[in-house]
């Protein structure tokens, strides 16, 4: 790898301010004499502006999706608790009963999670 390629490799971390002092100095020395590195630096600067814009963008669950999710979670918690309780009482037979009654996924996950 050439010296320029090595500096090229450091540019994203340079823009993200992740380099130590020696690495920063090395990048800045190389930038001083290289239009190509300057062009690449511009590309990364723009990328990090966009990353910041995307990070600032509000991403929220819609109210209906949130209600649906919380309802499903409540059902899942209930089934988890039921599976534990019935397993405790009746072992594999209890698990089969839960599966039969519609808690198959919960029962499988309970098994897989152990």
């Amino acid at each position: 790898m050439s010296a320029t390629d090595e500096v090229l490799d450091l540019l994203p971390a340079y823009v993200a301010d992740e380099l130590d002092a020696a690495e920063r100095e090395r990048v800045e020395r190389a930038l001083a004499g290289s239009p190509r590195l300057h062009e690449e630096l511009g590309g990364y600067r723009r990328l990090f502006v966009l990353l910041a814009a995307l990070a600032d963008e509000e991403v929220v669950l819609t109210a209906s999706a949130e209600r649906r999710m919380l309802r499903q979670l409540a059902i899942g918690w209930y089934l988890s608790g039921t599976v534990r309780f019935v397993e405790g009482l009746a072992g594999a037979y209890g698990r089969a009963l839960i599966y039969y009654l519609g808690g198959g996924r919960a029962a499988r996950t309970q098994q897989g999670g152990r």
């Binding site: 669950l61 819609t62 649906r68 499903q72 979670l73 899942g76 988890s80 999670g113």
Partner: peptide, 19 residues
Amino acid sequence: NGDDAADATQEALLRAYRR
């Protein structure tokens, strides 16, 4: 996309509860 993300969120939180 939002629909898949909502499903995955539900699964991740449920998995967290179980684990």
